[in-house]
Design a protein around this nucleic acid. Sequence first.
DNA 1: ATTCCATGCATAGACCATCTATGTATCAGG
DNA 2: CCTGATACATAGATGGTCTATGCATGGAAT
Lengths: 114, 114
Amino acid sequence: MQIDKSLMAGSTTLLILSLLREGEKYGYEMIAELARRSDDTFQLKEGTLYPILHGLEKEGAVKSCRREAENGRERKYYRITAAGLSLLEEKTQQWALFTEKVNAVIGAAVPAGV
Amino acid sequence: MQIDKSLMAGSTTLLILSLLREGEKYGYEMIAELARRSDDTFQLKEGTLYPILHGLEKEGAVKSCRREAENGRERKYYRITAAGLSLLEEKTQQWALFTEKVNAVIGAAVPAGV
DNA sequence: ATTCCATGCATAGACCATCTATGTATCAGG
DNA sequence: CCTGATACATAGATGGTCTATGCATGGAAT
């Protein structure tokens, strides 16, 4: 099943920050990693990811540095900052609250044992 | 805590159809009901709800009829159709899949026992 | 050698769902 | 009378994602 695009909105930043929490990563890698962990449910496009990363850097949530990788290619590695960590925490709490409330509404419409 | 607006995108239709599954309702009532069940987390605006209802009616997921209520006011009651029920089922499954995958990604970043 | 594909970053414009801001109309209460 | 709650409606702004495209490099195949 394919996920409706609009559902993705709002959670992309949460997903990206979650990945960066484990260590620095570069753009292309994050796209592949998101696809892998979600069993190809999340297939983030480059045109989506890069603007988000630039925005996060602009607000100080991540920092980047260009570096040559082992394969000789130049990559731009992103690292999460202290501000990024607290942003991640906020987003995580919002996500938990949001899913809880949605489930409260739709769950009420589909009572388990009634 | 206030939920980021963009998180709402995509799930509004699911919420509305869920409400209508229990029986016919009118617009103003749905807004109040959503707020109540979500402890005021979801405060849908009229400018958001009515266009959605019109769209759902256009695609045959709901049907409406104007009727005078006990209080003498004229209301527009919406009823979910068979097509609406299958749309609801699809949206519900998408929601379940989506939350599962998001949790897989962000959960992987915060392993419980490691 | 040349072509093609994967890697890797980047941006402009389109798209779509929601919000803001209004507008209309009725009814109850001060 | 005038305000506020009820009730529906629409236009325009906003914001996040997608599509499409561009550039550049390296490896593999013909």
